[in-house]
């Protein structure tokens, strides 16, 4: 279970980081969301992974650590609000600047080859 869980977090983080480094706002927002999912999973595992343990005293012989669950809940709420804000900001950026590039302008590239790729990408 630990291996599966750890690789899941790892894959999410690497996808998130890759997407955050993209140049358009939409992939960046997606990347931030994935990154925050990974973080939430990671926080959850800080209380150790266990099966059939209650988080309330007296319901089972061994109990799970309840604090990471509270932390994850806080992190989810904050992450959700922040994602909503960045989505709105990205939409406003699109309206104000006329494109969805994170720098506000699509870089002017002279090389024909890259230009062609860019056009294909836009279509």
């Amino acid at each position: 279970m630990e291996l599966l869980y750890a690789s899941c977090v790892g894959v999410l983080v690497s996808c998130g980081v890759f997407l955050i480094l993209r140049s358009r706002t939409f992939p960046v927002v997606l990347g931030l969301t994935m990154f925050s999912y990974a973080v939430n999973l990671f926080l959850f595992s800080a209380g150790r992974l266990s099966l059939n343990k209650a988080a309330v005293l007296g319901y089972s012989s061994e109990y799970a650590d309840p604090l990471p669950q509270a932390l994850v809940l806080t992190a989810i709420v904050i992450g959700f609000a922040m994602t909503a804000f960045v989505v709105i900001l990205a939409i406003r950026g699109q309206a104000d600047l006329g494109n969805d590039h994170v720098d506000g302008q699509v870089p002017d590239i002279n090389s024909d080859e890259i230009n062609d790729n860019d056009k294909k990408g836009n279509v």
Binding site: V28, L32, V86, L89, R92, G93, G104
Partner: peptide, 9 residues
């Protein structure tokens, strides 16, 4: 807007 986007991300 552009500076804010960078700052927020």
């Amino acid at each position: 807007t552009r500076a804010a986007l960078h700052y927020v991300i």
